[in-house]
Design a protein around this nucleic acid. Structure first.
Lengths: 189, 189
DNA sequence: ACCTGAACACCGTTCAAGT
DNA sequence: ACCTGAACACCGTTCAAGT
């Protein structure tokens, strides 16, 4: 793209820079604006230059998804298991809302990266502290994930243009916590 | 596409035929194979011919989403509200699994068509029978929707290739019902 | 190994013209 | 009103070539 570089010269790109440019693209142009060509343009390179650092677009998006989950902290080791779960899922929910455009993708392709596994392990650990183990713990984990991501996806939708988005989001956040409470009460037995 | 028709002649297309062709495309080629051009080719018309029957691709997909929900029956009027809800959500869940490729889209853009509204009204009616009304009913409705669609989305994901898909799906169906039970128990109070 | 240039095989959508 | 032909402005990805 930049006419100053001829075929032999390199731009000094790194995988991290590619991911960062992808995040910026997503933030400024939304999901439909996240294209290989846009990311390349932002970096001042030819579109196909990205393929030296990322296998393809799917892999790039997958990294974006897992990286976003890195912002969710581990639960404190001494917390009550129930409040620990409530807190962990609420924080996950908040992090998801920070990247609204990514949310629908979590349920579409799932997150299987290291951060997703770390979070899953954290949930299972808290459940075990509450005496929930084995298959029931797996079921509870799935229900909590589904509810948290699903709710965020619901929240992030355009929605009918009746109320202003701020007020609407505020009402929904309260709902998230309440439904989560229902779920946790049920899991407890 | 068909060389037998020249610019003046018409193919006798209807909106219904376009939607049906889109469903076939989705079934045979998956979501990535659902393109305006593929639908047109299936109907033997030029790609832009579709725009006489559908505003754009987004509208077409929206109709596909709501139409699929038409397969969910209304709950019987005399059922106990709790088992009625359990049944209605389970049927919705089953219908969602019948169109796996559409599932991620329900959370991405939401369903706001007549069938989606009918289902929502059905849920609210059952909740009212259980004494759950007002804002709490809205919260319960949202939790049930989120859980049902979210779970289906989770189920439909490719997943790691460890077990065969049949066995995996069977285990997950049981989990759906259990988490739903937790939720309903919580909603009951 | 990393990058450019050019190309391939696609997309959704629009516009003008024909009946 | 409904359709075709042609085009526009895009996509992701591959391939050959340059250093």
């Amino acid at each position: 793209m930049d006419p100053r570089r001829t075929p032999g010269q390199r731009a000094g790109l790194s995988r991290e820079q590619v991911l960062a440019a992808a995040r910026d693209s997503l933030l400024e142009r939304g999901l439909s604006g996240l294209t290989m060509r846009a990311v390349a343009q932002r970096l001042g390179v030819a579109p196909n230059a990205l393929y030296s650092h990322v296998p393809d677009k799917a892999a790039l998006v997958e990294d974006l998804l897992d990286d976003a989950l890195g912002a969710v902290p581990d639960p404190p080791a001494d917390a009550d298991w129930r409040t620990g779960l409530r807190d962990l899922m609420a924080r996950t929910h908040a992090v998801l809302l920070d990247s609204p455009d990514l949310v629908p993708l979590y349920l579409g392709r799932g997150a299987r990266g290291p951060n997703a596994r770390r979070l899953g392990a954290g949930v299972l650990d808290l459940l075990a502290r509450g005496g929930v183990t084995g298959p029931e713990a797996q079921e509870a984990l799935r229900a909590l994930i589904v509810y948290t991501i699903g709710f965020a996806a619901f929240e992030v939708q355009p929605g009918p243009e009746d109320a202003d988005p701020g007020e609407r989001s505020a009402g929904l956040s309260g709902t998230f916590d309440r439904g989560l409470g229902w779920l946790l009460a049920g899991i407890g037995g």
